[in-house]
Simulated assay, not measured.
Amino acid sequence: MPDVALPQGALLGFDFGQARIGVALGNTEVAIAHPLETITGDSNDQRFARIGVLIQEWSPAALVVGLPTHADGTPHEMTRLARKFAQRLHGRFGLPVWLVDERHSSQVAEVQLNDAGLRGRRQKPALDQVAAQVILQSFLDMPQAAGIEPL
Rank of each mutant, 00 (worst) to 15 (best):
A62H: 09
A62V: 08
A62S: 11
A62Y: 11
L63H: 08
L63V: 11
V64P: 03
V64H: 10
V64D: 11
V64F: 10
V64Q: 07
V64N: 05
V65F: 04
V65E: 01
V65R: 01
V65A: 04
V65W: 03
G66W: 08
G66N: 09
G66V: 08
L67I: 07
L67G: 04
L67H: 06
L67D: 10
L67C: 06
L67E: 13
L67N: 10
T69C: 08
T69W: 01
T69K: 08
H70K: 14
H70D: 04
H70S: 06
H70C: 03
H70L: 15
H70E: 11
H70V: 01
D72I: 06
D72C: 03
G73F: 00
G73H: 00
G73W: 00
G73E: 02
T74N: 03
T74E: 06
T74C: 02
P75S: 08
P75G: 08
P75M: 06
H76W: 06
H76I: 01
H76F: 14
E77Y: 01
E77N: 10
E77R: 15
M78S: 15
M78R: 14
M78L: 15
M78A: 11
R80F: 11
R80C: 03
L81D: 12
L81I: 06
A82Y: 05
R83G: 00
R83Y: 01
K84Q: 15
K84G: 06
K84S: 13
F85H: 07
F85Y: 13
F85G: 01
A86S: 00
A86C: 01
A86P: 00
A86M: 01
A86E: 00
Q87P: 00
Q87E: 10
Q87G: 09
R88L: 13
R88D: 15
R88S: 15
L89E: 01
L89W: 12
L89H: 05
H90N: 09
H90C: 02
G91C: 01
R92G: 00
R92S: 07
R92Q: 14
R92E: 14
R92L: 13
R92I: 03
F93D: 08
G94K: 13
G94M: 10
G94Q: 12
G94R: 14
G94N: 13
L95D: 09
L95T: 11
L95R: 13
V97H: 14
V97K: 14
V97Y: 14
V97G: 13
V97E: 12
V97M: 14
W98K: 10
W98S: 12
W98N: 12
W98P: 09
W98L: 11
